[in-house]
C-alpha cells in the first residue's frame, strides 16, 4: 500500500489554526457490578478551528466515552475522574450545570449516530430546529420558524418551507441526519462533535453528509471532532487523528503522517487489515485476538496481548504517550524502531 504524504500541508495548516478544544489527562470511570473500571485513561488531544480531528477506534475503545465526557453527556454510571477539557480556555469539566447549558448549542454542537432516536417523534422538525433560537436568543415562535427554514435550506433539505411542519418519521435516514446536523450548527458553535454520524447510512448518502459537514466546517471555521471506526473516512475527512485502544490513546498526529508511517503497532495492524485492492483471495493481515475487557486490562501496555512486538518491558511498564516526531505522539516502547522498519517482522528480535 502506498501513501502519499501530506505532512507538509497539514503541518503548515495546523500552525495557523487556533486551538478550540484542548483535552488533557482525561480519565473516565464507570461503575459496574464488578467494581469501578477505567473506561478512558489519560486521553488528550487538541481540536483546531476549521479542522477535523478524528477519534478512531474499535467498539469499546472509549472514543465515544471521551466525546460524551467533553460534551457532559455521560451516562449516570460513568463519571469524569480527572483531567480537563478546555473549550476556548474555559474548562468544560468544571462548569456548573447552568454554565454548561449556556455553552451547549451556542459553543458546542453535537450530532449523534442514530438520527431517529435523537429527534423527538411528537414535534415537527421545525419546532425542534427553532428551539435553539428560542432558548438562547429568546426568539418568537414565528422568528424561530423562519430561522428553522433557513437552517433546513442550509443543510440541503429540499422544499424547506413545506417540510418544516413534517415530523421526523416522514424524513429518510439521510434527511434526518441533515436535520440533526442543522440542530447542532444552528447557533454557529465553535466546536462540533459528530459521533459516528454516517454509520447507519448508505455509502452514497454518507458522501452527501460528509460533504455537508465539510462545507459547514469551512463556512463557520468550526473545529470538528469526528468519532468513527472507519479508517477510510478518517483518511478522507480528517486533518488529525487520535487512535484509541482499550481506553487509552495509542497514537496521534496528522492523518497523512500517521497512516503513511504508523508509529504504534496497533495503528499499523489496523491499516493492514483493511482490504485495499488486495489480491482477490489473498490472506489479509489481521490482528489476532480481540480487545481486552475494561475490567481485564493488563498491567503494562494495553496492547501487549495482541502485539507482535511485545517484550518483557511491555508486560511491566505501560508506555507513556510521548512525542515521536513534531506534532506526533505515540504510546509504544518501540515506536522509534517502527519509524524505520517497513514490516513488523523486521523489528522482531
Amino acid at each position: 500500500m502506498t501513501m502519499t504524504s501530506t505532512a507538509e500541508t497539514s503541518a503548515g495548516r495546523t500552525a495557523a489554526c487556533p486551538v478550540v478544544l484542548r483535552v488533557e489527562g482525561l480519565d473516565v470511570d464507570i461503575r459496574t457490578p464488578a467494581g469501578t473500571v477505567r473506561a478512558v485513561s489519560n486521553a488528550g488531544f487538541e481540536a483546531r478551528a476549521g479542522q477535523t480531528l478524528a477519534l478512531l477506534g474499535e467498539s469499546g475503545c472509549g472514543k465515544s466515552m471521551t466525546a460524551k465526557a467533553v460534551a457532559g453527556l455521560l451516562d449516570p454510571v460513568a463519571h469524569v475522574a480527572g483531567g480537563s477539557a478546555e473549550l476556548e480556555g474555559r474548562d468544560l469539566l468544571r462548569m456548573t450545570p447552568k454554565q454548561r447549558r449556556k455553552v451547549a448549542g451556542a459553543e458546542l454542537g453535537i450530532v449523534f449516530q442514530d438520527a431517529l432516536t435523537a429527534l423527538n417523534p411528537v414535534y415537527p422538525v421545525g419546532v425542534q430546529l427553532g428551539e435553539a433560537f428560542r432558548i438562547h436568543h429568546g426568539a418568537s415562535a414565528a422568528r424561530a420558524r423562519e430561522q428553522a427554514v433557513q437552517l433546513m435550506r442550509r443543510v440541503g433539505i429540499p422544499e424547506p418551507e413545506s417540510r418544516v411542519n413534517a415530523y421526523p418519521h416522514q424524513f429518510s435516514g439521510g434527511m434526518r441526519q441533515r436535520i440533526l446536523i442543522a440542530m447542532a450548527v444552528a447557533l454557529s458553535p465553535r466546536l462540533l462533535i459528530a459521533d459516528e454520524p454516517t454509520t447507519a447510512l448508505d455509502v452514497t448518502v454518507q458522501a452527501q453528509i460528509m460533504d455537508l459537514l465539510r462545507s459547514l466546517r469551512e463556512e463557520g471555521d468550526m473545529a470538528v471532532v469526528l468519532i468513527t471506526h472507519d479508517l477510510a473516512v478518517v483518511a478522507e475527512e480528517a486533518d488529525d487523528v487520535v487512535v484509541m485502544y482499550a481506553g487509552t490513546v495509542a497514537e496521534q498526529g496528522p492523518v497523512g503522517q500517521v497512516f503513511a508511517n504508523p508509529r504504534h503497532p496497533y495503528t499499523k495492524g489496523l491499516l493492514e487489515s483493511v482490504p485495499v485492492d488486495a489480491e482477490r483471495g489473498s490472506s489479509l493481515a489481521s490482528i489476532p485476538g480481540s480487545p481486552p475487557e475494561l475490567k481485564n486490562i493488563p498491567a503494562g501496555c494495553v496492547y501487549q496481548d495482541r502485539c507482535p512486538l511485545a517484550q518483557a518491558v511491555c508486560r511491566q511498564e505501560r508506555p507513556v504517550l510521548r512525542e515521536v516526531a513534531p506534532g506526533r505522539r505515540a504510546a509504544c516502547h518501540f515506536s522509534d524502531s517502527l519509524a524505520t522498519a517497513s514490516t513488523l517482522e523486521e523489528i522482531q528480535p
Partner: peptide
C-alpha cells in the same frame, strides 16, 4: 446500561 457497557 451496565449490561451494554463494553467489557462488563
Amino acid at each position: 446500561t451496565i449490561q451494554d457497557l463494553p467489557g462488563t
